[in-house]
Design a protein around this nucleic acid. Structure first.
Lengths: 339, 339
DNA sequence: TTGTAAGCGTTATCAG
DNA sequence: CTGATAACGCTTACAA
């Protein structure tokens, strides 16, 4: 146990010659204190180095101000960008972010959520990963609000934010066709998350509708290395594709690198490539990848807005699902016209 | 205020037919409870869905279990890698990470620290940024432990973890010389953080000692774009350098891309490049950058270890400064022999 | 080992 | 507007 070191409202009250309630009110936005007492309290607090104890406040108010961010693969460009936006906006909304990393753990998300609950987090935001019914229930049972980003869970209660993944698959398809591509491929990971599969589904369906076929290849987790492996598989096939939609920018980067440096293929002349996410590297001049941009800022703001909307009785009647559009960013990995 | 929804130790006690202290003890590692009561309590807790309230526990114990991570530029590869490691190890140590993003704020670090203090965080870890005396003092005055990573602050109290930046500058210099490079340059940002400046200093000093000169150029913040700008400046000079040490991998990536794609320069044949950090992209086949690896895992483990070392009376007599070695990773951006 | 009771630092309620 | 007083959920002497 640490020795006593913090000053309490009591002490401030004594020094200011007021009651501790006066001190409390001074630090509670929208409470009624006279300007004079307020001033006295503020000064005493300053001198003593007083800081409201949010642990105690949370205990009383039954509202901790903590929002729990449950995330895996933090070090990934897309994930960290989303995280950045989320923390920033949460802070601006006066909340504080508690961070839970589910990477190398076994009980992983479950154990993580336990922590969140123990600290009485007001809400949790889950950034991707596979859906799991039990989590949703654990959250809701404990009165937490829950936001699911790019996850799919049809239980009522949480807010679900998703992109128009299927539709994007269709859009990129027409871009490929317009570029005169004939042999289509889709490069995916084996992660099998709803958003990844949605992109695949949309792409394949769109092709079918046009009477075209798509070679689908899946490998490993959604990273650069997997992209390279996928390139090897796809580019050594008898019918080498002339257009590849990668489920993710990271995959696309690996794919492009392998295609160019190991197969000597010229992009976009011989092969068109598209990705998804618009990570920073997609704009680097080694890639100039045509890709769909995740609206991270909007995802974050929607999440935070929903989270902080004054606690209404029930979430009944609320929006429970938001579908955002991923904008297609034209760069140079798809040629303009049939070659 | 949220309606009551959590079950308390009281309720568990009633259901289990014991006193609330028995419940408390059951959940306190190393307290004396008979196996039987323990079992009864555990079962009742399970049935009721009880979770210890860490807010209340922290209040009593005067120890919250919270460690505050204060970080800027989270979405940067190096930073997010460090963050990943830190959160993981903190979790394993039974701590929980509170996240504070100092990116777009004004009061920035200061305001951030206030938050940490209000939640009675046991400790704070500051990942880079410029040093600031007041912060250290604010932390220490409030009984927080403080870890400074790649920051420089000579005040006693906090643990400082740094790399051998200067020395690395010297090491890369000999690599350049061995490759037959004669016109040296250092590409830096204007951020002016101690680690960045250390690398510059070491490199320049080493060159001087060998009677060589270094063109130093600084621009913007430490990112890809800045690297491109630096390339333009350095590569249009009359005496075009044939070796460039970039203060950061991100800088190096921008630099290499501009050098190759805009100046048509061949690396490493005409120009040798080195970086620092070993971000993931450094190993991508578009770069294959020879660089110094930040020992992120070790940085994290040292930090966590120090943080969790059972609270000794004072930190007096402790290690207060750790200097880690950055390993040079040979890839392909420096040629082996004089060309 | 167990229960009783005191307290941790707040805020909400209710008189004044 | 202000000050007592009672919670909040937990831990920890202390006594049994």
């Amino acid at each position: 146990m640490r020795s006593k070191i913090f000053v309490s409202a009591q002490e401030v009250a004594e020094r200011a010659g007021v009651s501790r309630s006066a001190v409390s009110r001074t630090f509670t936005p929208g409470a009624s204190v006279s300007a004079e007492t307020r001033e006295r309290v503020l000064q005493a607090a300053e001198e003593l180095g007083y800081h409201v104890n949010h642990l105690a406040r949370g205990l009383m108010r039954n509202e901790s101000g903590i929002v729990c961010l449950i995330v895996s693969e933090v070090a990934t460009p897309y994930r960290s960008a989303l995280l950045r936006e989320l923390t920033l906006q949460l802070q601006n909304a006066g909340k504080v972010a508690m961070f839970i990393n589910t990477d190398r753990s076994d009980g992983s998300v479950d154990r993580a959520l336990q922590q969140a609950i123990r600290y009485r987090a007001d809400a949790s935001v889950i950034l991707s990963g596979l859906p799991d019914k039990s989590i949703t229930q654990l959250c809701l049972r404990n009165g937490q609000r829950l936001v699911l980003i790019n996850r799919d869970d049809d239980q009522p209660g949480p807010l679900r934010i998703n992109l128009d993944d299927d539709e994007a698959g269709g859009r990129i398809l027409t871009a490929f066709v317009r570029a005169g591509c004939r042999r289509l491929a889709f490069a995916n990971s084996e992660a099998g998350t709803p958003s990844l599969m949605g992109r695949e589904r949309g792409f394949v369906a769109g092709a079918r509708a046009l009477g075209m076929d798509v070679i689908v290849e899946r490998h490993g987790w959604t990273g650069y290395e997997a992209g390279r492996v996928l390139a090897h598989r796809l580019l050594t096939a008898k019918e080498r594709p002339d257009a590849v939609f990668c489920a993710t920018d990271l995959l696309a980067c690996g794919f492009m690198d392998a295609a160019r440096h190991q197969f000597g293929i010229s992009i976009p002349d011989e092969l068109c490539v598209a990705g998804f996410d618009d990570i920073e590297q997609a704009s680097w001049s080694s890639y100039e990848l045509t890709t769909f941009a995740q609206p991270v800022a909007e995802i974050a703001s929607r999440a935070v807005e929903w989270l902080t909307k004054l606690e209404r009785e029930d979430g009944q009647g609320d929006v429970q699902s938001i579908r955002l559009r991923a904008e297609l960013l034209w760069r140079k990995s798809i040629r303009a016209r049939k070659s």
